[in-house]
């Protein structure tokens, strides 16, 4: 009986994670190095420019990179923005490598970056989108109880790109990207059972692996 319960639980766990496909890509433009006393910082492109990178994705990426390596320091995005306020806010941060000299011409910003040994700024773009959804699910509740019946599914795509900028050279040294697609579904016979493709989480994992690998190569 105990084995049956354990097997059922494992089977349920297997089925509650939907299928997803991950594609990663890397491009190196110029040679680069990083030492263990140097730091990197992640910054998402602004919603003012139409970019919609989610805050929880940035949090996930920051903590995932910090956990996966001890070759360099990573300064959390919010901490960096507070220390350099107002120069890296959504409406004021450089959106492309061409905007970088304007900020770096500021002596206070330049010297603080040097003092903190921040060598690379990684610009994150992209978001998670639902491409298509279908099916129907209806739930009802009454004095005698309630329940759901039906089947619904949707396709998600999490596409993120990280562009690595060298702050001392004011150049882009490379790009890495992660593209994850997956289908989630909810079959319901009285109780709905969500089977979710965690595309954003997989993209966070894939992109953090790519960034760590990029600096290890």
């Amino acid at each position: 009986m105990r084995i049956l319960k354990k097997n059922t639980f494992l089977l349920a766990l297997l089925f509650t994670v939907g299928c997803s496909t991950t594609r990663v890509d890397e491009e190196v433009n110029t040679a680069f190095t990083i030492s263990d006393d140097e730091s990197i910082v992640l910054l998402s492109n602004s919603y003012h420019a139409g970019n919609q990178t989610e805050l929880d994705f940035m949090d996930c990426l920051n903590s995932s990179i910090a956990k996966k390596q001890n070759t360099f320091e990573i300064i959390p995005t919010k901490q960096f923005q507070n220390l350099f306020y107002p120069w890296f806010e959504p409406s004021t941060a450089p959106q492309s490598i061409e905007d970088l000299p304007k900020i770096l011409n500021n002596d206070l910003v330049k010297s603080k970056l040097t003092d903190m040994r921040i060598k690379y700024l990684i610009k994150i773009t992209g978001e998670t989108k639902t491409n298509a959804s279908s099916g129907a699910l209806s739930c009802a509740a009454g004095p005698g109880g309630g329940g759901c019946f039906g089947f619904a599914w949707w396709d998600d795509t999490s596409a993120y790109n990280a562009s690595v900028w060298d702050l001392s050279q004011e150049t882009s040294v490379g790009n890495v990207s992660a593209n994850v697609t997956g289908t989630s579904m909810i079959p319901a016979i009285v109780i709905p059972i969500p089977i979710l493709a965690r595309t954003q989480l997989n993209a966070c994992d894939g992109l953090s692996d790519q960034i760590v690998g990029f600096f290890s190569s």
Binding site: E54, D56, Y85, P86, E89, P90, S91, T92
Partner: peptide, 26 residues
């Protein structure tokens, strides 16, 4: 997203005030 309506609205106001401060500083 995962926020309650009140929390999302409050955060939007806080972000706008922070943006005001950034634009004013510059």
């Amino acid at each position: 997203g995962t926020f309650q309506a009140d929390e999302a609205f409050t955060r939007a106001i806080q972000i706008a005030l922070r943006d005001t401060g950034a634009n004013l500083s510059i």
